[in-house]
Amino acid sequence: MPVFDGHNDYLQRAMAAGDGAARLWTEGDGTGHMDLPRLKAGGMVGGFFAMWIPDPETGDIEALLKQKENPPFDLPLPQQVPAAQALPQAFAQAAALYAMERTGTLSVCRSAADIRAAMAAGRIAAILHMEGAEPLANPDALHLWHAAGLRSLGFVWSRPTAYGNGVPFAFPSPPDRGDGLTPAGKALVRDCNALKVLIDLSHLNEKGCDDVARLSDAPLVATHSGVHALCASSRNLTDRQLRQIADSGGVVGLNYNTGFLRPDGRREPFRGHDIMLRHLDHLIGILGETGVALGSDFDGAVMPADLADTAALPGFLQAMQDHGYDRALVERIAWKNWMDVLERTWGG
Rank of each mutant, 00 (worst) to 15 (best):
W52L: 13
H228F: 15
F49D: 00
Q67Y: 06
S202G: 09
L283A: 02
F73R: 11
D55F: 15
D55N: 12
R214G: 13
N257P: 06
D55Q: 13
G185H: 04
P72R: 05
A222S: 14
G272P: 08
R159W: 11
R151T: 06
Q321T: 15
G249V: 14
D179K: 11
A162C: 07
D281A: 06
D309V: 12
W335N: 00
P37I: 05
E289C: 10
D114N: 09
V108H: 00
Q12P: 00
T161A: 01
V252M: 05
H282F: 07
H279V: 12
G180C: 09
D200Y: 06
D140Q: 09
D322W: 10
R344Y: 14
D326H: 13
P135R: 01
G291S: 01
R123V: 11
F171H: 01
M130A: 08
R190C: 12
W25E: 02
P135A: 01
L237M: 15
F260P: 04
G208S: 06
R110E: 14
S216L: 10
L87Y: 04
A308T: 12
L39N: 04
G132F: 05
D74V: 10
M100H: 01
R243H: 14
A120H: 11
A229M: 11
F4E: 03
R23G: 06
A222G: 08
G42C: 08
L39W: 01
G43C: 07
L215G: 05
A90M: 10
P76F: 07
V108M: 13
I275E: 07
Q321Y: 08
G324W: 05
A83V: 09
K66F: 04
V156K: 03
L277G: 05
N193M: 06
I61P: 03
T182I: 08
V3T: 12
R38K: 03
D211F: 08
N165F: 14
D29C: 09
A117N: 09
L215E: 02
T31E: 10
K186I: 07
P160C: 06
A301M: 15
A232V: 10
T31D: 06
E331R: 14
G285Q: 11
L153K: 02
H33V: 11
P160K: 01
F49P: 00
A229K: 07
Q241C: 12
G28H: 05
L153W: 04
D9K: 01
R271I: 13
M51W: 05
R262P: 06
S225K: 03
A120V: 13
T238V: 09
A334N: 04
